[in-house]
Simulated scan of single mutants.
Amino acid sequence: MASARPEMPTPPGRRPRRPAPTRQPLSQDLVVETAIGVLDAEGLEAVTMRRVAQELGTGPASLYAHVADKQELRELMLDRVAAEIRLPAEPDPARWREQLKEVAMEIRRVYTSHRDIAKVSMGLIPTGPNLLAIAEAQLGLMLAGGVPPKVAGLAVDTLGMYIDADAIEDTFYTATLPADVDPWEHFQKYVDQIRDYLKALPTDRYPHLVALVDDLTDQGGAERFEFGLDVLLRGIASYIEDGGRK
């Protein structure tokens, strides 16, 4: 058996060659993790099979052994992101509304921290284990509080649509801003401009808009989201008293 050739020394004036990094074997977890990295840096539209393959230093065809297509990849990304959502350990019947509100705000926090991932959730029937765990927790909280089962089943969908829509609107706004612009500061200036515009409207045509300018433009996105949640939760709670009648 021939012995291996001895390594050549580095010629004068040249840098020693670095050993090539060992490529990590492809797996579904690695593909999804890489795709989330692209999402966080560039947004959902940038997440294509070709782009993810480029990040992994391979060809798009190699990804299809681990995910069926771009849609499945997006759903797997969403479920992986959903694992970051903190859920209550146990339902507290006396605090079911507060707990349900905390879960909703936690979902919004996580979704908005991953650019426009909420687009994937909109219209999607959850089947991933982490998304199912969220639905299970929400149902458990409502049932513990006495919400009729049929109402609880419908309310999970309604809450999901509200959270998704709010998260998507938030990312649509921030996506239009340059990277060096503070979103909150920009929003405050924009609201001031809208407030001045509404106050200048003709009162004979828009009496209520002009009269309620301060109420219309008060509070930021988080406060408005919380208000909407309170409206929904009060509505869900009302079915406890009337026996679940719609």
Rank of each mutant, 00 (worst) to 15 (best):
H66P: 13
D92Q: 13
G37T: 00
W96Y: 15
Q71N: 12
G140K: 10
Q54H: 15
L139T: 04
D40V: 08
L56N: 01
Q71V: 11
S113Q: 02
A35Q: 01
V52H: 08
R50K: 04
Q99L: 08
E102Y: 06
G128F: 12
V81L: 05
V67I: 00
V38G: 09
E42L: 05
A46I: 05
E55S: 04
A89V: 10
G37I: 00
A41Q: 09
R108D: 10
R74G: 09
E72W: 12
R51Q: 00
E33C: 12
Q54I: 02
Y111R: 07
A94T: 09
S121W: 02
E102K: 14
G128Q: 09
R51F: 00
D92G: 04
A83W: 03
L73P: 03
T112D: 03
G123C: 05
L87H: 13
L39H: 04
L139K: 10
L78R: 08
T58G: 08
K70N: 13
M122T: 14
A144D: 07
M142D: 03
Q99C: 10
M49F: 11
A118G: 08
G59D: 14
T112G: 02
V32P: 10
L39P: 04
A82F: 07
A133W: 06
M142L: 07
E98S: 15
V120L: 06
G145F: 08
S121V: 03
T127C: 12
E42D: 15
Q54P: 09
I107K: 13
P88H: 15
E102F: 14
L78A: 01
R95L: 15
G59P: 09
A83C: 04
L143Y: 07
Q54G: 13
I134K: 07
R115T: 04
P129N: 03
L63Q: 00
E55A: 11
V103L: 04
I125L: 15
L78F: 01
R80A: 08
N130T: 06
N130C: 05
V47R: 00
V110K: 04
D69R: 15
Y64V: 14
L73A: 01
Q99H: 10
T58P: 08
L39W: 07
A65E: 02
